[in-house]
Design a binder for these strands. Sequence first.
RNA 1: CGGGCUAUGGCGCAGUCUGGUAGCGCGUCCGUCUGGGGGACGGAAGGUCGCAGGUUCGAACCCUGCUAGCCCGACCA
Length: 452
Amino acid sequence: MRLTRYFLPVLKENPSEAQIVSHRLMLRAGMIKQASSGIYSWLPLGFKVLRKIEDIVHEEQARAGHIAIQMPTIQSADLWRESGRYDDYGEEMLRIKDRHGRDMLFTPTAEELVTDIFRAHVSSYKDLPLTLYQIQWKFRDEIRPRFGIMRGREFYMKDGYNFDISKEAALHAYNRHLVSYLRTYERMGLQAIPMRADSGPIGGDNTHEFLVLAETGESEVFYDSAVTDLRFGDREIDYADVAQCAGVLEEFTSRYARTDETHDEALFNGVPEERRRVARGIEVGQIFYFGTKYSEAMGATVQNADGKPVPVHMGSHGIGVSRLLGAIIEANHDDNGIIWPEGVTPFHCGIINLKQGDEAADGACEALYSALTAAGLEPLYDDRKERAGGKFATMDLIGLPWRITVGPRGLKNGVVELTSRRTGISEEMTPEAAVARVVEIYVPHLAAGRAG
RNA sequence: CGGGCUAUGGCGCAGUCUGGUAGCGCGUCCGUCUGGGGGACGGAAGGUCGCAGGUUCGAACCCUGCUAGCCCGACCA
């Protein structure tokens, strides 16, 4: 993309409404625009990152054997009355009446609808296990939206639902989700720590929240610092392997790690003092096993091997897709702007032409642009007739992890400059070497996507 | 939902107390000189001052009502 043809309305000054860094930077980098309280339009740069995150979630869901569907945002109240949640959910649920006066609602989650789909079409244990998921807009009418998209009213969320014949099978699904979530977050450059959590209105006993440590997090968290040393890495995983998935769960959840909701001071004191940490975290996902709560209320049964109807065991699992943008920025920024992890960056590499109109500089930039594009990468070429300072400031603000700087001075010696946004370290090299290096950097990230 | 506050050009703000031609900085557009971290100079566009009513010869400013948004708290993925 050439910046002169793109739509990137960056702001030099901080909008007064934004309090936390991710909100400020998203507004300044021209990623979002508030439409009303807690509701945002996604501008090109923000939308691009949102889709990158969404792609990673889809890829990892597919890898775990889960199946994508799409359910409506506006639902009839009838199903919600059937489960009893129409009254339980409270003011947070946005209720709407259609022209006939029928009660409708804007979905805050979809257990009822997916259970309705299931009971209509699945009747045999042979069709299990089954996990259906969607990535869809949700609405929760927060009393007080804040922190930009981190706590908006409208938000984009992956919600998945597993259907299994037994508690044992459903717990495997639970473990499988935990594993797939660890992979998902790690691909986004995030460390999200599973912590024992509270189930809230979803119900159920088994539940973990995934938290990204950040000073601006809304939850107070207590953990054994040993959990921050855990990495999923590139280990091979067989999602059908019950013992292996259970092993990962054990590895990642055996140490103390809880939010303030479930914090137990006595247990926490059992952690060696030098490893006890109290911090704040942003919740970016949660997994639940809730058994037969919805299947019994809504009659979602299958016939087992003996021909007897039994209610299915279910769980639901969410990833806050739009919220992840905020969490990623909270965890990856400096005074000059965002620093995108390679896995989610809107463009792989920036190209700065220090002297637009200079024949050598223009030509070298065009050649770099073509070479990167041909290698399957998306560069963002700042071809504006701006001064160098302005170009650097914009590039730093929008946070592309790699930047190639091209100027007449360097070109006289046959070199351009490759700079890491994260470390600030620059290296001079030939344009060909710079392209090769950038391509090499992205090889694992592109491969991770294809493998899904 | 309690408490506090705000609304003036795309963004940040002054002007309101004390009514009298709507301003500043940044950004945007045009031009010239520039050119390796937001440069200089010259020109220009852009605002029914959140909405409705009232007071007044005259309202961004005073009065009444409404709406929207922000912050703290409780709540929450």
